[in-house]
């Protein structure tokens, strides 16, 4: 009996002092295994009386139990210590830069174009493109700019031959769309694309630029509808607080024609350097489709009417992002492009 208790005390003390899981396993094998001191002590049982044997058995079971329990408890402690040590070893510097993958950019003019496409497609417009190498007939004549009109002087247009040119605006796409519709409405279309004028390139002029034309034709389309549509455009591109102002103007292909201003987003209309103290910024031209254009493009102007507008994408981008040199759009300069990496 005393021997059992001695073994127990020795075992518990060794388990307590043990410092690794391996050592602990060795102790388990030693004390609870078949060749351990417990087993040897048990051998003396055969010389004991029945009563003695019963009480010896009881004590021995209890000792075994206690040792097993002590080992289990110690194991938990040691495992946790080991995990903590491992975690400590695995520590990294989370402040080092991430393995970021390269991020490309969409060209700002494309961003504007896609924003417009999404806005208008959402309202049931389709998107038409049309050729950049265009005929005089489509670019000018069908837009009510007859041969002797001052607005089509040679210096403004890149002619290829007498009847062919690089389109000076996206308006001829209107004519393509109308003629394809065979005089039958409704038409709801926007026409984004590249356009060209015979200008020397400088900070505010570019021989190549981008426009987006809009055209709606049906039986009851009014100038009020034009105003409402352009208000949506202004709010989408420049913020919910924007208002628009229409001013009378002149374009050969619309009558009445309007110049559209938006309330200055920089000063909210109070007047600042951006809006030249007027509170308004000129943003686009528009109007009701000239009945002559409707007729030339196969629509009965007594039945159909509609509106058209033309947005200069560079102008929108320059205003929206505060770009002051139009040439930046066409240089491919990464220092420029990288500024448009995020979604606006």
């Amino acid at each position: 009996m005393d021997e059992l208790l001695k073994i127990k005390e020795e075992a518990l003390s060794k388990i307590h002092d043990c410092s690794s899981l391996k050592e602990l396993n060795d102790l388990r094998v030693f004390y609870l295994g078949k060749k351990g001191p417990m087993q040897s002590a048990m051998k003396s049982m055969k010389d004991m009386s029945k009563e003695e044997r019963a009480s010896f058995g009881q004590v021995s079971n209890k000792v075994k139990q206690e040792i097993t329990q002590a080992i289990e408890e110690k194991k938990k402690i040691l495992e946790e210590a080991e995990m903590l040590a491992k975690i400590q070893n695995e520590k990294i510097d989370i402040s080092l830069p991430g393995s970021q993958l390269p991020l490309g950019t969409i060209h700002p003019l494309t961003m504007i174009r896609e924003e417009l496409e999404d806005l208008f497609v959402g309202m049931g417009y389709s998107v038409a493109e049309g050729p950049e190498v265009e005929t005089d007939h489509f670019n000018f004549e069908l837009m009510n700019l007859p041969k002797d009109h001052p607005a089509r002087d040679m210096q403004d247009t890149f002619y290829i031959d007498e009847n062919t040119l690089l389109r000076t605006h996206t308006s001829p796409v209107q004519a393509h769309v109308m003629l394809a519709a065979n005089g039958k409405g409704p038409i709801k279309v926007i026409c984004p694309g590249k356009t060209y004028r015979r200008d020397d390139d400088d900070a505010t002029h570019s021989h190549q630029f981008s426009q987006c034309e809009g055209l709606v034709i049906d039986k009851n389309i009014t100038m009020a509808d034009l105003k409402g549509t352009l208000e949506l455009f202004a709010k989408k591109m420049f913020g919910e607080k924007r208002e628009i102002r229409l001013r009378p103007s002149y374009f050969p292909f619309t009558e009445p024609s309007v110049e559209v201003d938006i309330s200055c987003y920089n000063c909210n209309g109070k007047g600042c350097s951006m809006c030249k103290q007027t509170g308004w910024i000129e943003i686009l031209g528009a109007g009701m489709v000239n009945p002559k254009v409707l007729e030339m493009c196969g629509f009965d102007s007594q039945v159909y009417q509609g509106f058209a507008f033309g947005i200069g994408l560079e102008r929108v981008a320059m205003l929206k992002y505060g770009i002051d040199n139009i040439r930046d759009f066409y240089s491919g300069d990464l220092r420029f492009l990288n500024q448009f990496v995020r979604k606006d």
Binding site: E117, F120, V121, G122, M123, G124, Y125, S126, V127, E129, P186, K188, V216, D218, N220, I221, T222, M223, A224, D225, K227, G228, T229, E231, L232, R245, L246, R247, P248, V258
Partner: peptide, 22 residues
């Protein structure tokens, strides 16, 4: 022109979509 009201076209529904190529 500032007295002209603002509205949106009241007309038949039209399908708005990009072409497959677009």
């Amino acid at each position: 022109y500032n007295h002209i009201p603002s509205s949106l076209p009241l007309m038949e529904m039209t399908k708005g979509a990009l072409t497959p190529v677009q």
